[in-house]
Design a protein around this nucleic acid. Sequence first.
RNA 1: GGCGACGUGGCCGAGUGGCUUAGGCAAGGGCCUGCAAAGCCCUGUACAUGGGUUCGAUUCCCAUCGUCGCCUCCA
Length: 452
Amino acid sequence: MLHLYDTATRQVRELAMREPGRLSMYLCGPTVYGPPHLGHGRATLVYDILRRYLEWTGIEVRLVSNITDIDDKIIARAEREGREWSDITTKCEDIWFRAMEGIDVLRPTDVPHATEWVDEMVEMISTLEASGAAYATSDGVYLSVESVEDYGLLAYQSLDDMIAGGGDREVVGAGEKRHPADFALWKLAKPGEPAWESPWGAGRPGWHSECVVMSLGLLGDGFDLHCGGQDLRFPHHENERAQAVALGREFARHWMHNGFVVDAEGEKMAKSVGNVSNLLDLIEAYDSRVYRMVLLQSHYRSPVGISGDGLEAAGRSIAGLDSFIARTAALDETDTDGATLDAFRAAMDDDLDTPKAMALLFDTMRQANTALDNGDADTAARLSSAVREICRAVGLRLIEQETVPAEVLAQAAALDAARAAKDFDVADSIRAELQDAGWQVETTRDGTTVRR
RNA sequence: GGCGACGUGGCCGAGUGGCUUAGGCAAGGGCCUGCAAAGCCCUGUACAUGGGUUCGAUUCCCAUCGUCGCCUCCA
């Protein structure tokens, strides 16, 4: 059974499922006004790993992740560039999913767009207003946070402490708000802004309202898990939750937050691979599995530094995985090492201890290699089968064995013949030729193998 | 000011009251190889500082220094 740290109760506890065997989870998706960055990559990778692992254990996962396609930032960019706002959102969304593909993140099972749910949002806001939890001002509709008893649950701060600490910040919409922390559910449109009709006048929904309506709308009351980056804990998740509480509806039963990507750290990286803080650049420069491996080797709640050195180290570890996969490709893997998989599950079930799982993966590869060196193909096969299973469970794509063209095989045979004849100059030149053509050449006592 | 996280070997990054003190990358030595590659073996003896608790602390407590995050729309 998977145990996960729950931000709301501040403890690692079992991830309960409303319906046994089926997990409902909501991940706050991107606001599509710019290219995805490394932080987006981390968040999507962490939950992709969670999802794939659960699916691997036989659980049916429904992952809803929205597209916020109406927001102040989108409008601001549209104005700045003199473009249609929908032109920006469609292009950015397209880029987003290309980036996701570039890091092997599966598409969520549901991708609701905020603009498709405006009617439901208006309805919810009306309900809140009718109950007295929300009120209209001259620029919109606000939720009264004082009507929510435990407001501050996810922020770990009471409303009073928040205000006390807030200091000299500018308070948005201060003039007419009942409390400085009250937040906008509906924003009335200024001339020229995109707008939808509502009882309060033409306008657009507030960000926090979008996510409650879509999560409850698709997953229903009391869904299992709500996730996102640490920075969404407050105010976004707090405010989503506040609306649900004010509506008297049960919201997420478990809250999961991933740590940040910290300092790209370094002039070297920028020089050698360009500005990698943009996810698109990273995809351009590295194998799709590299970022995933970096994240797997640290805990999802820890901050992680992404540097060129770190990515390259991960790349080399993946090269080792690739050569292992190639080396064991022909083994008969009908049987899998159960103890290894048990240990893997135990690690993952303990708050997604992927660093331990990766240590296990590398240990298992070593054992299998040793078995192969000793000619014990059965043991090697059981272990390498476990390696493949683990990779599948965490979404580490395995290299596909490319069929080697006949002429390349012929060259490999010629290489072996030259070695047998102790004609090493010829052998070396054939090897160099193959390597120049992009082949990995492994010359062993049993003969030469080539692969990409 | 409030709340929270964290300081581990050359780098990244787990973890733990003593038991085999992860793993990856890099480095040195060795095995294998005609030479490489791949693989395997060995080596480095780390836990911010100062106190305290304890038979014993890197791990618990306190303080100090330092880094970072959130405190109204940022994954």
